[in-house]
Amino acid sequence: MFLTQNFLDNLLNRGPEIYESIGMNNSLKQTSGSGIFEFTGIEVVEQFLFGGVTSVTDEARKEMLAQVGKKFSSL
């Protein structure tokens, strides 16, 4: 059986606002989402971009995990 759907998690070192301001969020979605997975026939169901993972509080990291869990639960 081949993989036909995928969730992508991009863990970024800096805060998300920095990546958004320079267009990096869109670039990541284009290169890894559309450029790699969709090109090979794998649908990207969701692509999460989490910034500051190494520098945020434990509560913030738990919220990031909750977002992923919520998406999986909705399938």
Rank of each mutant, 00 (worst) to 15 (best):
K71L: 09
Q67N: 03
L3P: 11
V44K: 04
F7G: 08
T4V: 13
N13H: 11
A66R: 04
F37W: 06
E63Y: 00
T40D: 09
G69R: 12
N10E: 11
F37C: 07
V56P: 11
M1W: 09
E43M: 03
F37Q: 04
M1F: 10
Q5G: 10
G33R: 03
L8Q: 11
Q67C: 01
F50G: 07
S55R: 14
I36V: 10
F72T: 14
Q67F: 02
G23T: 06
L11A: 04
I42W: 01
E59S: 06
E38Y: 00
V45L: 10
G41E: 03
F72K: 14
K29Q: 14
S27H: 07
E46K: 15
N10K: 07
S73Y: 02
N25H: 11
R61C: 00
S32Q: 14
R61F: 00
D9T: 13
G69V: 05
V56R: 13
T54K: 15
G69E: 13
S32L: 13
N13Q: 06
L49D: 07
E20F: 03
M64G: 00
R14D: 11
L8Y: 07
G69S: 12
S55C: 11
E59G: 03
G41R: 03
A66P: 00
S27M: 09
F7E: 11
A60T: 14
S55A: 15
M24Q: 05
F2L: 15
I18E: 13
M64E: 04
V44R: 05
D58I: 07
F2D: 15
T31R: 10
L28C: 06
G51Y: 05
N26H: 13
Q30G: 05
G52H: 07
F7K: 11
A66M: 00
E46Y: 07
N6Y: 08
G23Q: 05
D58L: 09
M64F: 08
E46Q: 14
N10R: 05
L12C: 14
T40V: 06
R14C: 07
N25C: 11
L28T: 01
D9H: 10
E17K: 10
N26E: 15
Q67R: 08
S34N: 13
G52M: 06
G23E: 05
F7H: 13
K71Q: 09
E38V: 03
F39I: 06
F50E: 11
S32H: 12
N26F: 12
L65Y: 04
E17L: 09
S21G: 01
M64P: 00
I22Q: 10
Q5S: 13
S74K: 12
N6Q: 13
S21N: 05
S74M: 10
E59L: 04
L65T: 06
S34L: 15
A66T: 02
D58F: 05
F2R: 15
F72C: 14
N25M: 11
T31I: 15
G52E: 09
T54D: 14
K29I: 13
F48M: 02
G33M: 01
V56W: 06
N6H: 12
R14M: 09
V45C: 04
R61E: 00
A60V: 14
G41F: 04
S55P: 07
E38M: 03
L49Y: 02
V68F: 04
F7N: 13
T31V: 15
F39N: 09
T57M: 05
T4K: 15
E59V: 02
L28V: 05
V53L: 02
E63M: 02
V68P: 01
I18N: 10
D58C: 03
I22K: 09
